[in-house]
């Protein structure tokens, strides 16, 4: 295998790059956290305000991910299966949330969904409050995480052989039951991966949320904002403790996503 040169050099650059840029800062965080000890860390984690933010961040991220599960499947399906004018444009547009700075998304969504905004005003007339309420956070997260499910489902849907659907149809299954019994099971690993990616991103998202959430402690304050709040109160150790919690979550999600992707690949091969 080792016919090719450059192993030492390329691995050296990789490790140096990774070490200086990623591992060293993470080590600083770990060291700071070690200095605190578990008891102190636990005390920060169980503060009512932190728990409220944890619940809020996880709840809103989960709701947004569930919405995008359906929305993403719908969009992926339409883009792959149907031909219609503007399809290419719509396909390109799916990536807009990746390309658009989150702060821009934040101020735009706040303007639209504020009680004086284009959509906020009619919704307010119906008694639905979006901006400065948990619903606003969900709206922002739906925007930011929309591409994940679409982009994980799309390739699987494209590579799905038509034969099984034809077989199913020829056996007399209705279109709906073919979708439910034949197509959907094939998509489940991709859907799960997309969901996990959207969920992980949603929990950590900051830029688009701060403008629309209103940042009310215990009500609309997300986890990253608690970190900033702690920093503003000169409480660096407490901020570190929450950062450690978020990092642990990142590790778990990364692991889960990798396992899901492996599962998806195995399904694809089989």
């Amino acid at each position: 295998m080792r016919v090719l040169p450059g192993f030492g050099l390329s691995l050296g650059i990789t490790l140096l790059w990774l070490g200086l840029l990623v591992l060293l800062p993470l080590a600083a965080l770990a060291a700071k956290a070690m200095g605190m000890g578990w008891a102190d860390m636990w005390r920060v984690w169980t503060e009512p305000r932190v728990i409220a933010a944890l619940e809020l961040s996880f709840f809103t991220a989960a709701v947004a991910a569930v919405v995008n599960l359906f929305l993403g499947l719908l969009i992926a399906w339409v883009l792959v299966r149907y031909r219609f004018p503007g399809r290419k444009l719509a396909d390109a547009l799916v990536d807009l949330p990746f390309a658009l700075p989150t702060a821009v998304a934040g101020i735009a969504l706040t303007t639209i969904y504020a009680p004086t905004g284009w959509l906020g005003e009619p919704l307010a007339a119906l008694g639905i409050k979006v901006a400065y309420a948990p619903l606003g956070i969900i709206v922002a997260l739906i925007f930011v995480t929309l591409p994940f499910v679409v982009r994980t489902v799309q390739p699987v849907l494209e590579s799905l052989p038509h034969e099984i659907e034809e077989a199913s149809a020829s056996l007399g299954a209705s279109r709906w039951s073919t979708f439910r019994r034949v197509i959907l099971p094939e998509l489940i690993p991709a859907l799960a991966t997309g969901f996990a990616l959207a969920f992980a991103r949603g929990v950590g998202e900051f830029g688009s949320v701060v403008f629309i959430s209103g940042n009310l402690p215990m009500k609309t304050e997300i986890l990253p904002l608690v970190i900033i709040g702690k920093l503003d109160q000169y409480a660096v150790p407490a901020a570190t403790a929450i950062a450690v919690l978020m990092l642990l979550f990142s590790f778990v999600m990364l692991l889960a996503i990798n396992l899901l992707q492996r599962w998806a690949q195995r399904r694809a091969v089989a």
């Binding site: 400065y132 209103g214 940042n215 009310l216 402690p217 900033i228 709040g229 503003d232």
Partner: peptide, 9 residues
């Protein structure tokens, strides 16, 4: 403070 709608930064 129970009447507070938004506690801004």
């Amino acid at each position: 403070y129970a009447n507070v709608l938004a506690l801004d930064k």
